[in-house]
Amino acid sequence: MEWSVVTGNAGLLAAATLNTVAIAATTIVLSVVLAFPLALMRDSRVAPLRVIAGIYSWTTRAMPTLALLFLAYYGLPELGIYLDPVPAAVAGLTVSAAGYNMEYIRAALKAVPRGQYEACRALGIPFPLALRRLILPQAMRILLPPLSSNLTLLLKGSALASLVAVNELTGQAMALISDTYRPIEILIVVAVVYLALNGVLVAVQKGVERQFRLPA
């Protein structure tokens, strides 16, 4: 073992880790924000909206995430849209994750008893307010476990960004390996960083889930 390849490149690896965190965090936020209206559209009374959301959900979940990343990076320029590597990676990962997130959100909204929706209507509470103050807090308890397990998948998914020329943790690792020919040391460090980030994400989840738990 020759740990100097790690200590000597600690700065590069740290910067790459920050990139990974930034990509994962942006994707996590954007994919939930994008998934929410899609989930509402999926059960909308307006048929075209329902169809669009249905097609979106089916195609994005059927396609490999890597295919979506390539579509954003290699495919969009064909339509005259040129994205830099990082935005392309974030776009691909977000579109992919939103397809799953919208199904979890939809299932959670459906799991709130119908009577709750009817009571809101009977009390004349406008739908947006009802959603925010009454439905969502109840749906959250059902939504959080599947949603957060999908978000840890997103952290792992951010490694795919290295394949569209983003210099995040895995990409940096590949570059360092071809420079130094010390794959073992570098990959061990990278694995530890991913597992640590994963641990942080799981701890955050636990905290958030506790927030939404019913008082015993």
Binding site: T152, A159, T170, I177, Y181, P183, L187, A191, Y194
Partner: peptide, 20 residues
């Protein structure tokens, strides 16, 4: 460990680290 690591990292380990 294997559910926490990106697939790509596991593959790189098998492809680059094992030969080393």
């Amino acid at each position: 460990v294997f559910r926490g690591l990106p697939e790509l990292v596991v593959l790189l380990a098998c492809y680059l680290a094992l030969p080393a």
